[in-house]
Design a binder for these strands. Structure first.
Length: 227
DNA sequence: ACCCAGGGTCATA
DNA sequence: TATGACCATGGG
């Protein structure tokens, strides 16, 4: 057999992960992530943005600021009802109120944000993952954007886009993909930061599966690109 | 009237 | 291990 068991993709001239990164950056420019100020605010935003549009998160964060509740003690002190009320615009407000409290509880228990910054990357990540409501993507958002550690964040867009481009199957486990990207690209905090931001901010325009590829920086290299 | 967005948990088989 | 139900607002 001359043909490999791979999918019938005709001698694809695949762009490397770095080339794709360069094209995205050239096309869209720096994204300046993570929006927002303090490490704690980034942590809060990471939880609130779970399956939620960022504009909705901004309203919730604004509510917290207006109520002077954007701090671990204030969030722990607030009643679930009141906290959920502030979070309402970000959706899933009851669930997210519980998750924010859980995160703050752990954070205070660890001695505060300053103490977290002293943990090595592995322990920081493991600690975050031990909090109910913080999964791999949220944990890595925090580790990368709040604590500037070299972890590559894997999200649904990353899977879709790079599966479509033929770099991965798409059904690999989270850790498998994270290590794959980290080994090829890293460790490089600025690149990890910008790459994930570009993917998320412009994912809808990048090699979209439905209905098909849109015009984008990758259109030429995408097998499903229109024209 | 749908579909989607910067996911994660829990119950079930 | 792998699905499915559930959480809920706001914009297109």
């Amino acid at each position: 057999m001359t043909s490999s068991p791979r999918k019938n993709r005709k001698s694809k001239p695949r762009a490397s992960l770095r080339q794709i990164y360069r094209r995205l950056l050239a096309a869209h420019g720096p994204q300046h992530w993570w929006p927002g100020g303090s490490r704690f605010e980034i942590m809060v935003g990471a939880v609130l943005t779970q399956n939620t549009a960022w504009t909705n998160v901004e309203r919730a964060v604004a509510n917290l600021k207006r109520a002077k509740a954007l701090s671990p003690p204030a969030i722990l002190r607030a009643s679930p009802k009141r906290l959920a009320g502030w979070l309402r615009p970000s959706g899933y407000f009851n669930v997210k109120a519980k998750r924010l409290k859980a995160m703050c509880h752990w954070l205070v228990e660890q001695g505060g944000v300053r103490s977290l910054a002293r943990l090595n990357t592995h322990d920081l990540r493991a600690g975050l993952l031990s909090v109910n409501g913080i999964g791999p993507e949220t944990a890595d958002d925090i580790v990368l954007y709040a604590f500037e550690r070299p972890v590559f964040v894997i999200d649904a867009y990353t899977r879709r886009i790079f599966a479509r481009l033929g770099h991965i199957r798409g059904d690999e486990g989270y850790e498998t993909l994270r290590h794959l990207f980290e080994n090829i690209l890293g460790p490089d905090v600025p690149v990890f930061n910008e790459y994930h931001a570009l993917i998320v901010a412009h994912g809808k325009d990048i090699c979209r599966v439905k209905p098909r590829c849109a015009e984008c920086a990758l259109a030429r290299s995408c097998p499903g690109a229109v024209k």
